[in-house]
Amino acid sequence: MIKVILHGCNGKMGKVLQNIIQEDNEMEVIAGFDQNKSNEPVDFKIYTSPNDCDLKSDVIIDFSHYTAIPSLLDYCVNTKTPVVVATTALGDDEKKLLLEAAKTIPVFNSFNMSLGINTISKMLQVAVPIFEENFNTEIIEKHHNKKVDSPSGTALLLADSINKACLVKKDYIFGRHGKNDECKITDLGIHAIRGGSLPGEHTVIFAGPDEVIEIKHTAYSKNIFAVGAVKAAKFLANQKPGLYSMEDLI
C-alpha cells in the first residue's frame, strides 16, 4: 500500500484526489497539508504546515499554490519524500528549486496531469516536422472566468512541445493586435479566452495552403488531472532521485 500525503488537500483538486484515491486499493491518504480550513470531515489528520507532520509517507501529491512550493520542497528534501508537483503557474524561481530538490529526491512535475494532453504533446512531435515549413501554427485555449493565469500552463506545455520539434524555433506571440501585425511562419500565436463556466479547452491549429488541421482537447472535469497525478505518484514512489515528467510516464 502506497502511503500518500496531499498538499493542498482542502482545495478543489485535493478533494477530487481524496475521492479518486479512496477507490484505489493500492493507495491510501495518511495526512494532508493545507493552510486553509475545511468543515468537511476527513479520515486523516490535516496539518497547516508540513513541518508539523510526524508521519512518513511514500509520496506527496501537490495541488496547491506556487507560493507554497519552497516550504514543501524543503520538507520533502529533509524527509527524503518523493513529490508530485502539479501546481501550475510556477515561475523561474520555483523551477530552479525543483531542479535542486531533484538532486536529492524523485520529483515529478508537469504543467498538466492529463494523459490526453500529454499524448497530444507527443503527437505534435510527429506532426510539426511535416507542417513546419508551410503551415502557420496557433494555439487557442479557453477556460472559465475564475482562472487567474493566462495563457494556461497547458498552452505553454503544447507550445514548448511544438518548438522542441521545430528546425527553426518559433517566436511566441501572446494575442494579436495592431494594424501591421504580419503573421510570420515562424510565429506561434497563443490566445487565451476566459468566460462563464467554459471547460478547459486547448486547440492547436496548423493552417496551410488550402487546408487546416486542428488537434483539440477538452477537459470536462478535474478527475482527469487527479487520475494522472495518481499514476504519476505510483510511478514516482520507486524512482531514484531526479526530475521526471509525463514524458517519462507515458
Rank of each mutant, 00 (worst) to 15 (best):
G178V: 06
F44P: 07
K56S: 07
K142I: 09
L115G: 00
K96L: 10
I130R: 13
D74W: 06
L115I: 06
I130M: 08
G200Y: 07
D92T: 11
D181G: 00
I120C: 05
A101S: 13
S64F: 07
G14E: 08
E141D: 12
A237P: 02
G32M: 02
K234W: 08
V204L: 10
V204S: 09
G228Y: 12
T88H: 14
I130C: 11
I193V: 15
P70H: 08
E26G: 01
I20P: 01
Q125R: 12
Q125G: 13
Y66V: 04
C9Y: 07
G91Y: 03
K37G: 01
P209C: 01
L167R: 08
C53D: 07
A165M: 08
L17K: 02
E133S: 05
A232D: 14
L236G: 02
I5P: 00
D43F: 08
A165R: 02
A165L: 03
H143R: 15
V204G: 14
K12D: 07
H144A: 09
T154N: 10
A232F: 11
D248N: 15
A89F: 11
T88G: 15
G91T: 13
K147Q: 14
Q35E: 04
K37D: 12
V227F: 08
S110G: 11
V42S: 04
P129F: 09
V126W: 07
K103S: 06
N238Q: 14
P106L: 04
D43C: 10
L97K: 15
I140S: 12
A127E: 11
